[in-house]
Structure formats: structure tokens, C-alpha cells
Design a protein around this nucleic acid. Structure first.
Length: 803
DNA sequence: GAGCACTGC
């Protein structure tokens, strides 16, 4: 036995050196062996485990042998600090690396980890916020390690998996890593995790931060490296129990910042007309020695269009303007138009852009930035449960990010169209997305993973209690949780679907209404950016702009059918591309639509429900949609174009909708967004009768005017049904006895029995009524009032006898 | 009469 004890002891150490993903099962087996050996000895089991552990250690060794020799390019700022970073990572579980653009941290840190022998017992996973970025980082890493992509470096993004368990490094989007938590609770496939661009603070990053903090104690051998912009580093360090921070300088050129007051020359007045400041800044730039292009940050498409017209009129026509041209850039612009900014031109360029150019796209040759100081930002109103998309003043961090875009090429200049005092008064950071979003899907995921109360979860920025309550309310609306906040069967199914819970609920309802086929198509397109493009010059006159429908959803079904037909009948990809362009449809998004559709179809089949072949009617499709959108219904008001929605909100149909001109009485919308007004976008007519059966868990009824009805021989009341305060049934007659038997009985006795207001008189009553008649006659003849008993005495008499 | 930017089992 002592021999067995020794073997156990050394086995325990060896388990610690095995592949991370094996350790959990090894430790479990080990513990049962340990107790078995105490009783009578299970030497066979011990041998088995020993050989399994040996194999696992061998494969870790084999992985280690595949780690390439790494070197760090001299010209990157991060290379000079490679040894320091290596030391910090070796000594700490979590390290924060702060650095500006151009420091080389994204590509060099994975190599530093490999140098430390990481990637052997598990993979190194490296997350990026965007799919394009994940792919390009993987490509660069493969290049720098002199390997083929897919060999030691792999990547995985939605719809595209070029990874395998053989990879030492796997580059993914942060969403993929979150998805993996559902099957790998402690992320045991990895021995190191790099969260890159953490300062972007998207919903995924914030969730991962909380999640990683909670699994740290259970994964003592796990290494986590977080990279971010300098200003956020301290906050992140605090979150991870004062993790060390190392600062790496960037490789940007200096950028001069000029404020509004420095635009005018001596004695000049600031222009008052809209966008006057921009044209003034453009004049200053044309006087400047520089020759680079100009990037103008504006809040949105509308402002871009307006400014485009102004610049053409006031600047391009002038003598200095003839050497310039204007380009526009926003996400919904066609790829062809977007790509113009990467092309070459013999003219200097003014690029009018939204926030796409702040993080997602890097535009070449920019030397000047003009910053309007504004951006459209999405917020969520917990009170009205609608989204808001309004122009806001950007934070200092965002303004600095914008300015930095001028210094990638050479010494740059940034004109801020506001004063220094204005800048100083601004908030330090943009509110992270988690404080601006509906939390329903975050809470659903937390419930599914049993992460406990969101209020206790280690978020970097804890959402306000109101936001958490709101998230639970939506989940309750969808039937995903029960009254005691436990996940229901519906909730479990929703958690498994890679879509918003509302959209998931529609898919489940599609089964119930037998219209899976259509709902899966719609669920996919509603989870992606609209495939319809907006071209700056072209008028939107495609076949899919016809506005004769009762439903915007059906327009999507028409596009789908068109695309499927095109896809089935057309061989060449370029021909498909041309057809898409002709109809102002995004080729790429249509393909993603197909991909997501087939993905969702698979998920649904795995859950065991059939996807129908035959087309379904509009009524069932819209009832299924409605099931997920119960809070988004509305009833047309007298006031033109206005709808009353749930929770006492008023909204209007978006002018881009098919229903804009002729909306009908009742509508449901996919989203309610407050811009200049509160608009319902993607709308359909519905029948009022559909609502109540789908919302039975949410409706409230009030009853009024209970009266005895002689015709119906029953006590009848008026019922009013409301859904979140919106009247969906104004006055319906109901049999009152079932709802309030006591009161109904009283009314019955008073009206029917005492007063005899009945159609068929039973004999006792006939007798009573005849007697009353006789007594009344006696009273009037004898001028006495006391022969006939009072009605109330009669009532009391009956009250005691009627069951 | 009109829409910031991303992402996923």
C-alpha cells in the first residue's frame, strides 16, 4: 500500500503537467481512486490513470516541440520590452498591456507566450472584436512564424472555421470565445487567453471580463493577457485584483490639436451657417503646407449628405477647391462605394465618414482630421423599453482616438469644431455598451451557465438594478423564465440559439404555427445588418422597394426567393454579384443570410423539430413573429400617423416602411427606435384577435358594470383587457359568476329574484310576485305602507336560502 | 418623410 501511496503522490503532480482539458477528468478519477485505495486498493484503476496521464503529458510535449523559434522585429516598440513582458507574464496570472496603435502588441504578445512554452498544454486563444481583424491577425501571425495558416496558427469566426485542435494559437472573435463557455465551462481547452482591444468595451468583452474573473481561482495555471488603450489600463488592473500594467509606446506621429477659436483669423467672426465651421477648416487646411487627405467625422448619413452638398457648393467650386474631391463613408454604403477610399486618385480627398473610420476601417493617407465632436450612439431606455439613436457629444477618449487617425502617416493636424473648455467638460470615456443595452440576452446566458445573480457578477461596470429588472421582465415576456426567475424549457431552448432572445422566441413559435420555413428565413435576416444597400447617388428604385405590402417582413421573403432563384440558376459568382448590385443588395450580406439561415435550420433540427417545405400563409407567419414582439404592438390613434403602444408610448411608422402610407389599425414592429421621433421599423399589420391568446401570461383584465341580463339569464359584466397598459379588448361581455361569484350572486338575487326580472318565472317566484302585487294593491287601497315588507328584507330572506 | 458601429452556440 505504501507503494500505491507513492504512486498516487507522483500521479497527482503529473496530472498538473497534463493537457489542461484533460485535468478535470483526471482529478475526478484520481479522487475516486484515492478513496478506493484507502478501502481495498484499485491498482488496476491506478495503472489505467497513470497511462492516460502519461499519454496526455506526451501530447503536451509533442505540442511543445512544435512551438517555433520566435524573434521580434526590431522596429516595433513592443520588441524592446519583450523580456519585461515575458517576465511579468511568467510571474502573474493576469497582465494588462497598455499601448497605442502601432506598438505591435497584437502580433507580438502571442509570440511572447509561445516563447514561455505556452500553447503546449492547451491552446493560446486570442480574441478580436471584429471578424475581419481576427482573420488578418491570424494571417500576420502565420506569416511571422513562417507557417501555413491552419498549421500552428488557426482562426475561427462565425461562418468560417480554419482552426483545429492541433493549432497552438487560435485567433477568434470575442463572440466565439463566449459561445465556447457553453460547452467548456472553465475554458479548459486553453492554457492562455489574450483579450485584445479590450478598451472597445463591447458587450462580449465586458461579459468575458466578469467570466474570466470568476474562473481564475479554478484555473490557477491559466494565463490571461489583456491589451487596451492606455487610459483604461488602471481600471482593468483593479478589476483583476491589481494585475500589473505594462505600458508600450505607440508608433504614431504627433498630432496638433486645434480648437474652434483657432480657426478664425484676427477680426474674423465664426460662421453661423450650418457646417460653416467645416468649410472654414477646409480653407485653413488648403492654406497649410501639408498635402495629405482630410477625414471628417460626422454623426451619421444624413449629416454626411448635407455636408456633401454644402462643400460642393461652398468649397469645391472655389479656386482652391478644384484640386479636391469628396468621398463618403458609412457602414450601409455599398462595398463598391466604400472601397473608393482605398483607391488612388490624383486629387486630394475629403472623406466624410461616420464612426466606421474611428475603429473599424483604417483609411490611408490621412493627415488632417476634422472632428465634429458628435456621434450617433445607441442607448436603451429601460423605462419605455425602446432604443434611442441620438446625436451625442463624444467622450475625450473617442475624440483622442479620432485625432490619432491623423498621425499614422506623418505629423498630423486635428481640427476640433468645439472649444477647449467644451472638450474639458466632456466625460472621459464613452459609456460601455453594457450600460447602454437591454440585458435580456446577457441574463439569459448567465442563467443558462448558472452564474448566479447578475447583481453579484463581477462586471467591470455593474449595470444599474433597473437594467437587470428590465432584462428579467423581457425574459418573462418571452416565457423564458418563470416567476421565481428560473429558466423554463423555452428559456433553455432560447439560450441555445445564436440569436437575440426575441428572435429565438419567434423561431420556437414558428414550430407552433407551422411556419418554420419562413420564420427561419426572417430570423436570420433580422439578426444581420439589412442586406439592402444605400447608394449615395442612386435612387432606391429596386424591385424590392415596392410599397404595396401589409408587411415589411414579406419584403424580406421576396428578396430571399429572388436570391435563391438567382443562386440556383446562375453559375458564376460575378454574375450573381452584378445582379445584386443592380438591385442595391449587398452580395456579402446575402451570403451571410444564407449561412445564418442554414446554421439556424441546423440548430432547430438538432432540437428535434422539422423544418417544413410548403409555404405558409401570412397570418401564421405574423402570429409567430408577434409571439416574440408582444411589447412592440401598437394601435392607430385619431391623430394622423400616430400609434399608441404598450407602456403608454406613442410612435410613428418609419417612412421607409411599406406601411407608411396605409398602416391599418393594429401593427407590430421588429424594433422601436427613437431618433428624431419614436419610429417603428420593420412593421406589419396584425389582427387584434391574435394578441390576447399569445399574451395571456401578460394581460390584465378589469371588469365593470356587472348587470343582470334577462336575455342571457345571467349576470354579465364588461371586461377590458390590457397588455402593458394598452387596451387590446375594450369591452367584452363576460359571465360575471365565474369571476366574482359572491357579487354575481348578490346581483342575481337583487335583480332577478327580488325584482323578478326574469324570462321564465319559476312557480315560487310567480307566487311571490303575485303576492307582492296583491299587497301593493292593498297598500294603496288602505293607504297603509307597512303591509308589504321592504325589498331589503325580501333580499335578506332570499340571501339565506339561495345557494 | 428617414438609420452609429460591431458580434454569436
Amino acid at each position: 500500500m505504501t507503494n500505491a501511496k507513492k504512486r498516487l503522490h507522483s500521479l497527482k503532480q503529473q496530472i498538473g503537467e497534463s493537457l489542461c482539458k484533460d485535468q478535470w477528468s483526471f482529478y475526478r478519477t484520481f479522487r475516486s481512486l484515492e478513496s478506493a485505495l484507502k478501502r481495498n486498493g484499485d491498482l488496476e484503476g491506478l495503472e489505467q490513470l497513470e497511462s492516460k496521464v502519461k499519454l496526455s503529458i506526451e501530447s503536451a510535449g509533442a505540442r511543445a516541440a512544435r512551438i517555433p523559434a520566435v524573434s521580434f522585429p526590431d522596429d516595433l516598440p513592443v520588441s524592446a520590452l519583450a523580456d519585461d513582458i515575458e517576465g511579468l507574464i511568467a510571474a502573474n496570472q493576469v497582465v494588462i498591456i497598455s499601448g497605442e496603435t502601432g506598438s505591435g502588441k497584437t502580433t507580438q504578445i502571442p509570440k511572447i507566450l509561445m516563447k514561455l512554452g505556452r500553447g503546449s498544454r492547451g491552446q493560446i486563444v486570442h480574441t478580436q472584436p471584429r471578424r475581419i481583424a481576427a482573420r488578418s491577425v491570424a494571417n500576420r501571425l502565420a506569416q511571422e512564424t513562417g507557417t501555413e495558416l491552419g498549421d500552428i496558427i488557426g482562426y475561427q469566426v462565425r461562418f468560417n472555421d480554419r482552426s483545429s485542435s492541433e493549432n497552438l494559437i487560435k485567433v477568434v472573435t470575442d463572440g466565439i470565445l463566449i459561445a465556447e463557455t457553453q460547452t467548456d465551462r472553465f475554458l479548459s481547452a486553453y492554457d492562455s487567453i489574450i483579450i485584445d482591444e479590450a478598451h472597445e468595451r463591447n458587450l462580449n468583452i465586458d461579459f468575458l471580463f466578469g467570466y474570466l474573473k470568476s474562473i481564475l481561482p479554478k484555473r490557477p495555471e491559466l494565463k490571461i493577457v489583456i491589451t487596451s488603450a492606455t487610459i483604461d489600463a488602471e481600471k482593468f488592473s483593479k478589476h483583476f485584483n491589481d494585475a500589473p500594467v505594462i505600458k508600450v509606446s505607440g508608433r504614431l506621429y504627433p498630432v496638433d490639436i486645434l480648437y474652434e477659436d483657432s480657426l478664425t483669423k484676427e477680426g474674423e467672426q465664426l460662421p453661423v451657417e450650418e457646417y460653416g465651421l467645416v468649410t472654414l477648416a477646409l480653407r485653413r487646411i488648403s492654406e497649410h503646407r501639408g498635402s495629405g487627405d482630410v477625414l471628417v467625422f460626422l454623426p451619421g448619413e444624413r449629416e454626411i449628405r448635407q455636408l456633401d452638398a454644402v462643400i460642393r457648393k461652398d468649397f469645391l467650386r472655389g479656386s482652391v477647391g478644384k484640386d479636391w474631391e469628396i468621398l463618403t463613408l458609412f457602414s450601409r454604403l455599398s462595398v463598391r462605394e466604400q472601397n473608393k477610399v482605398f483607391g488612388s486618385s490624383h486629387k486630394r480627398r475629403i472623406i466624410l465618414s461616420t464612426n466606421v473610420a474611428e475603429t473599424s476601417l483604417t483609411i490611408p493617407r490621412i493627415q488632417f482630421v476634422i472632428d465634429s465632436g458628435e456621434a450617433r450612439l445607441k442607448r436603451y431606455s429601460y423605462r419605455n423599453k425602446v432604443e434611442m439613436l441620438q446625436v451625442e457629444r463624444i467622450s475625450k477618449a473617442a475624440a483622442d482616438q479620432r485625432a490619432g487617425r491623423a498621425g499614422r502617416l506623418m505629423h498630423g493636424v486635428c481640427f476640433r469644431l468645439y472649444t477647449l473648455e467644451d472638450f474639458q467638460k466632456r466625460s472621459e470615456f464613452t459609456d460601455p455598451e453594457i450600460l447602454r443595452s437591454s440585458l435580456a440576452s446577457v441574463i439569459l446566458r448567465m442563467q443558462y451557465l448558472r452564474l448566479g445573480d447578475p447583481q453579484e457578477f463581477p462586471f467591470v461596470d455593474l449595470p444599474i438594478p433597473r437594467a437587470i429588472v428590465d432584462g428579467y421582465q423581457l425574459l418573462e415576456e418571452l416565457g423564458a423564465i418563470s416567476g421565481d426567475k428560473k429558466l423554463t424549457k423555452v428559456g433553455m431552448e432560447l439560450a441555445k440559439m445564436p440569436v437575440d432572445p426575441r428572435v429565438g422566441r419567434m423561431i420556437l413559435a414558428g414550430r407552433q404555427f407551422g411556419c418554420n420555413r419562413e420564420i427561419l428565413i426572417l430570423a436570420a435576416v433580422m439578426s444581420l445588418p439589412d442586406p439592402r444597400e444605400r447608394d449615395f447617388s442612386a435612387q432606391m428604385q429596386g424591385v424590392f422597394e415596392r410599397k404595396d405590402e401589409h408587411s415589411d417582413f414579406l419584403v424580406f421573403l421576396r428578396i430571399w426567393i429572388w436570391f435563391q432563384k438567382l443562386f440556383d440558376t446562375t453559375r458564376s459568382k460575378s454574375e450573381i454579384r452584378r445582379a445584386c448590385e443592380k438591385h442595391h443588395l449587398s452580395f456579402l450580406r446575402l451570403f451571410e443570410w444564407r449561412d445564418l439561415h442554414s446554421h439556424l435550420s441546423q440548430v432547430v433540427r438538432d432540437m428535434g423539430f422539422k423544418v417544413g417545405e410548403a409555404p405558409s400563409g401570412a397570418a401564421s407567419i405574423h402570429q409567430a413573429l408577434l409571439t416574440g414582439l408582444l411589447g412592440n404592438i401598437g394601435y392607430r390613434q385619431e391623430e394622423r400617423g400616430t400609434f399608441r403602444g404598450t407602456r403608454d408610448i406613442k410612435f410613428q411608422i418609419h417612412p421607409g416602411s411599406s406601411l407608411y402610407k396605409n398602416p391599418g389599425k393594429w401593427v407590430v414592429s421588429f424594433e422601436l427606435v427613437e431618433t428624431t421621433k419614436l419610429y417603428a421599423r420593420t412593421v406589419a399589420r396584425i389582427e387584434r384577435d391574435w394578441i390576447e391568446p399569445l399574451a395571456s401570461h401578460l394581460t390584465r383584465s378589469t371588469f365593470s358594470d356587472p348587470l343582470w341580463s334577462r336575455e342571457q339569464g345571467n349576470v354579465i359584466a364588461k371586461e377590458q383587457v390590457t397588455l402593458y397598459g394598452l387596451i387590446i379588448v375594450p369591452a367584452r361581455s363576460v359571465i360575471y359568476g365565474k369571476l366574482n361569484p359572491r357579487e354575481a350572486r348578490q346581483i342575481f338575487i337583487q335583480s332577478a329574484l327580488v325584482r323578478g326580472d326574469v324570462r321564465h318565472c319559476p312557480p315560487f317566484m310567480k307566487h311571490n310576485l303575485e303576492l307582492i302585487q296583491v299587497l301593493e294593491n292593498m297598500e294603496s287601497r288602505s293607504r297603509r305602507q307597512d303591509i308589504l315588507v321592504d325589498e331589503s328584507i325580501n333580499y335578506s330572506f332570499l340571501e339565506e336560502r339561495v345557494p
